[in-house]
Design a protein around this nucleic acid. Structure first.
Length: 528
RNA sequence: GCGGAAGUAACUCAACGGUAGAGUGUCAGCCUUCCAAGCUGAAUGUUGCGGGUUCAAAUCCCGUCUUCCGCUCCA
């Protein structure tokens, strides 16, 4: 039988609005994609675990990135220099020397309590803010004037304070009882615009070593990129790479997000897949465009095609201080709809990071390029010494997995199994399933044999399932929710002509094929 | 961080202050020759957690945690 109901468009609900996020989350829990971390203890804010299907889904995503970025970069596409793109991997640690994060700029004004001004949007270090009050210390109902030492606000506020009180003295903001309804912020006009002090400790910290000594404080990395810069010289010295080339790094990072929100989208622990591509400054912008375009194509290739994916070039005033160009690959999540949320940032970082680490570590990180410089009489080039520029495509694997889950979720009420996860076969955690149509007449035995063969061949890329329980309809439905793209069923005809049916998840349509063609069929469909 | 809403079985949800239930799923058996079909049965709950009020709390009160929504934040 062949039922091919019209399938809903992946990526949007039939009405064209956002898909129901609660239904997606419910399915993710029910089928073992995503669980809340420490669920039985009531959960922990900002942390999520993956269940059996989710773990394999994410592994497939990570593997796809590894293959297409490191082992066979850009599917063999030629770079702007007309040559093959070359990349190598590293695997660097979550914990590095604390000075790394000083050099990178991550340790700075963000580990101290800060107060914000609601009127001017100014932000001040709490312990730096002083206040002019009357000499007596009692301002009565009058406002008092906050300032920051050695800033224009100091003299300005002092004048105002003296006009109000006459003789004044200055005290720390922290000595004034909250709420600060009578405090006028440094650049503000109205009183009471300062928030209470807040800690912006973005980075998690820890103390390595058996003895707890503050002097040893180290941080859990907020990005994997820095590990690459730290090992740049070692990689160059040990692996015969030549500029231009990339170094990829994947792994867990931590950010103490102020407000974890939107399911796994803004988690405090998350996994990144980052490539740092080093090139000569003169060629850097071309490489930036190259990577920007490839990364967009890549996300499309694993199933995020459609209107839900966009490439957004950052405006000038949005750029980091070191970047001359940044683009985001963004996906229209149900919870951002109709806006988009970032999946990956492709940043031109110039030579900022290598410069910083060279300065802070004292190590020489320049690259000696023997293919550049004037031609010498002996036929070789003089060479050129420089700090390479860096293009950084930095993807969030958990965000990628979430986008894939959202994109795949399809509700089709016309199907007996209305909820279908339409994963791209390459990413699908379950690759195939084998069923006996009924649990008798020799069918289970034949099906087991087929299952063994398929599993032996494809277990390295995902689950291969065998299911003989309950009705065939329930088994198909289960596979639809798990996102298994192909189900092979042994039926009464199999014993006589060695054929089985293959059912397509997205259409429900079936066709018959020789049993010994099943492995070949899957090889083609799964691309392995 | 602020404001609002919610939290009961794996999922979706019921239950007047008075014995915690249903549907779905899961599991087992029977049946079954292609789509959550049928029959029979089973397991799963300190009602998020901790206090309080009460003879009695899923229910009322307080605290706390988590999730969702809106602000804020997102180096």
């Amino acid at each position: 039988m062949s039922t091919s109901a019209p399938s809903a468009t992946p990526g949007s609900s039939p009405a064209g609005g956002p898909k129901p996020m609660d239904a997606i989350m419910s399915l993710c829990k029910r089928r073992g994609f995503i669980f809340q971390a420490s669920d039985i203890y009531g959960g922990i804010n900002g942390f999520w675990d993956y269940g059996p299907l989710g773990a394999q889904l994410k592994k497939n995503l990570r593997e796809a990135w590894w293959q297409d970025m490191i082992m066979n970069p850009c599917w063999g596409r030629k770079g702007p220099n007309g040559r093959r793109v070359e990349c190598v991997p590293v695997e660097t640690r979550i914990i590095q020397h604390p000075k790394v994060w000083e050099a990178s700029g991550h340790v700075g004004g963000f580990n101290d309590p800060m107060v914000d001004c609601k009127e001017t949007k100014g932000r001040y270090r709490y312990d730096h803010v002083m206040v002019f009050v009357p000499e007596s210390g009692d301002a009565g109902d009058k406002p008092v004037f906050a300032y920051v030492g050695d800033q224009p606000s100091e003299s300005k506020q002092k004048k105002k304070a003296e006009k109000t009180f006459g003789a004044v003295k200055s005290v720390a903001l922290s000595s004034i009882p909250q709420p600060w309804t009578r405090v006028i912020a440094p650049e503000a006009e109205k009183p009471g615009t300062l928030t209470e002090p807040r800690m912006f400790n973005l980075m998690f910290d820890t103390i390595p070593g058996a003895i707890k000594d503050e002097a040893n404080r180290a941080y859990l990395r907020p990005e994997t990129a820095q590990g690459v810069f730290l090992q740049f010289k070692n990689v160059v010295d040990s692996s015969r790479v030549k500029i231009p080339f990339g170094i990829g790094n994947t792994g867990t990072s931590f950010r103490n997000e102020v407000t974890p929100r939107n399911y796994t989208f803004r988690s405090r622990e998350f996994e990144q897949a980052e490539l740092e591509f080093f090139c000569h400054p003169d060629e850097s912008f071309k490489w930036y465009e190259f990577w920007r375009d490839f990364r967009m194509d890549w996300w499309k290739s694993i199933g995020l095609a459609g209107e839900n994916l966009i490439l957004r070039e950052h405006a000038k005033d949005e750029l980091s201080h070191y970047s001359v160009g940044t683009s985001d690959v963004e996906y229209r999540f149900p919870f951002t709809f109709p806006e988009f949320g970032e999946l990956e940032g492709i940043a031109h970082r110039g030579n900022y990071d290598l410069t910083q680490h060279q300065k802070h570590s004292g190590a020489k990180l320049e690259y000696f390029d023997q293919e550049r410089g004037e031609l010498l009489p002996n036929g070789s080039k003089r060479g050129e010494r420089y700090l390479p520029h860096c293009i950084e495509p930095a993807a969030g694997l958990d965000r990628g997995a979430l986008a894939i889950l959202c994109e795949a979720y399809t509700k089709d009420e016309s199907r007996p199994s209305p909820e279908i996860m339409k994963f791209h076969p390459r990413i699908a955690p379950i690759k195939a399933a084998v069923f006996p149509l009924v649990n008798k007449d020799g069918m289970p035995e034949i099906a087991e044999k087929l299952y063994d063969a398929v599993r032996a061949r494809f277990a390295k890329v995902g689950f291969v399932e065998f299911d003989e329980k309950q009705s065939i309809g329930k088994r198909y439905a289960r596979m639809d929710e798990g996102g298994c793209p192909f189900c092979f069923t042994v039926d009464g005809q199999t014993a006589t002509d060695q054929t089985v049916t293959v059912r397509d998840r997205d259409t429900g349509a079936q066709s018959r094929m020789a049993m010994d063609q099943v492995v070949k069929f899957l090889e083609d469909k799964l691309g392995v």
